[in-house]
Design a protein around this nucleic acid. Structure first.
Length: 271
DNA sequence: AAAAGCCCCTGGATGC
DNA sequence: TGCATCCAGGGGCTTT
């Protein structure tokens, strides 16, 4: 589910409200992707300093240590004073003096992991290989183009890997490549510098517009207030196989790349 | 070293 | 109605 826009929209919807709260309890449902890595009761009494984002991870900073939250494919967070009985897919609750932070994740590809420091072995294993943040400066053309130049895989695969630039998942990779006019199957090292610049700008553009629209709600994404996103209504290619391109009328195609679907316009996107 | 495949898991849509 | 099949927003790990 959640790519950078959805994770950022989630963060924005509760970060200010949870900051300063004290942890009053932890409840865990079915196991998530990874174990928490600490005795849950040891978190009680700690203070929440704030919430940051790194790629698709949310970092909940505590006065001692931090919690890394990942929403996987189907996760979403809620934060508020509603402490009603957990539903079947509510698998992690962090109760605080300011409200309850609850992870709902049907497929359980998500995780909540404790790290003692940002440079701890645990944190580095999950965050250490991540590329630059596309919406926070530092995403410059030279590094991006050089990075692409070293890869022989398809450009869409390189975007998804998140080692050059983070946060671009299956929806926004297809959308950014459409906006840049680049066929997803083009080898990364064959992307010229001018096309790399188009792609860089398209990534920034599509991700920031998606954040402004509250993310994409394909089936069940909501922010921590329960509000859905509307960017999916503006998708040019994602999930539009067989439908006419909004720009040229050609029929949008769907192909498989690395066990994921890719969508593109055969006319607007050049090999 | 990099690329390609393999899984983890549940549920909704579709087809017979 | 039931059952089988396919598909889904991710990503670490193992195998080539």
């Amino acid at each position: 589910m959640p790519e950078l826009p959805e994770v950022e929209v989630t963060r924005l919807s509760f970060a200010d409200r949870i900051a300063g709260a004290r942890v009053t309890g932890v409840r865990m449902g079915k196991p998530l992707r990874w174990p928490l890595g600490v005795n849950p009761s040891s978190l009680v009494g700690r203070q929440v300093l704030g919430v940051r984002r790194r790629g698709k991870y949310l970092l909940v900073d505590l006065d001692k240590g931090l919690l890394l939250w990942h929403l996987g494919m189907s996760g979403s967070l809620r934060f508020g004073l509603d402490r009603s009985t957990p539903q079947v897919h509510d698998h992690f609750d962090l109760d605080t003096t300011h409200g309850l932070l609850r992870l709902n994740d049907p497929r359980r590809f998500g995780a909540v992991v404790y790290a003692s420091h940002e440079n701890s072995l645990t944190a580095v294993k999950l965050l250490g290989h991540l590329g630059v943040e596309p919406l926070q400066g530092g995403f410059d053309l030279n590094r991006f183009h050089q990075g692409l130049h070293k890869r022989h895989a398809a450009v869409k695969q390189v975007l998804l890997a998140g080692e050059l630039v983070v946060g671009v998942g299956n929806i926004y990779a297809s959308e950014a490549l459409f906006l840049a006019g680049i066929r997803p199957t083009v080898r990364a090292d064959r992307v010229s510098r001018p096309r790399a610049e188009k792609l860089r700008l398209a990534i920034i553009d599509v991700l920031s517009r998606a954040v402004a629209k509250g993310g994409s709600t394909l089936r069940d994404f909501t922010n921590a207030d329960g509000q859905q996103g509307y960017f999916q209504l503006e998708a040019h290619v994602y999930d539009r196989a067989g439908q006419p391109c909004r720009a040229c009328g050609s029929l949008i195609r769907r192909i498989q790349q690395g066990q994921r679907s890719t969508y593109y316009c055969p006319t607007c996107q050049k090999p």
